[in-house]
């Protein structure tokens, strides 16, 4: 990609993104193209990270392990649902992922957790997401009992309108009361340590950068 085009892309993306400055956007674009690899750009074919590549990044860089959550994070990034995260989705996604305000993050997380996208996190969805969260006790008759109980506990804590499922309002209220509940059903944001490492690595000192 030529320099001029890159410049233009950086400018447009910087304009649309409030959490990164121009330099940072530039870094991220570079990173994106590094990750995508040498794919010749042709008209009509979108360049982007496919599901596997993206999951790989989540796993390697941000230490995520839960397949389902990673899939959902991919969906969260892939706004146009074409199976690829393109460069603008990458920048936009990362801006929430890394620097998002609480509101943005809540919205993002809720979307991740709302598996079927109907605007509610149902009991079944919760069960689905929490099903691996407890050590299986061999002694227990119903291995799922603990999970069911956990779902009930969560509902009791978060379901303010008592309709048996979590609306965004429920979720938002609960998170505002207790920020820890932001990632209530599984880690879908980078943990602070890998977050810092990632930023430190990607946004290297500008002088250093110029040398390259």
């Amino acid at each position: 990609m030529n320099r001029k085009k890159l410049q233009k892309l950086t400018d447009t993306l910087t304009k649309n993104c409030k959490h990164f400055n121009k330099f940072e956007v530039n870094c991220l674009i570079n990173l994106f193209y590094n990750l995508v690899g040498e794919v010749t750009e042709r008209q009509g074919i979108t360049i982007g990270l496919d599901r596997n590549a993206f999951r790989n990044i989540l796993h390697m860089t941000f230490g995520m392990t839960d397949d389902m959550i990673m899939d959902r994070v991919f969906r969260g990034f892939d706004k146009d649902n074409d199976g690829y995260v393109n460069v603008s989705e990458w920048i936009y996604g990362l801006s929430v992922f890394l620097r998002g305000t609480l509101e943005e993050k809540m919205k993002y997380c809720f979307e991740v957790f709302d598996l079927n996208g109907d605007g509610f996190i149902s009991k079944e969805e919760m069960f689905h997401m929490l099903k691996n969260s407890l050590l299986k006790q061999p002694s227990e008759e119903d291995p799922d009992e603990g999970i069911k109980d956990l779902v009930e506990i969560t509902l009791k804590k978060m379901d303010h309108d008592h309709d048996g499922k979590l609306s965004f309002t429920d979720y938002e209220q609960a998170v505002r009361e207790e920020t820890l509940l932001l990632e209530a059903f599984g880690p879908c944001l980078p943990d602070p340590k890998s977050h810092m490492e990632f930023e430190a690595q990607v946004f290297k000192d500008p002088n250093e950068f110029n040398d390259i």
Binding site: L134, L180, A184, G186, P187
Partner: peptide, 9 residues
């Protein structure tokens, strides 16, 4: 007996 998510809940 829970992982991080269950613990936080």
């Amino acid at each position: 007996g829970g992982n991080q998510t269950a613990t936080v809940i």
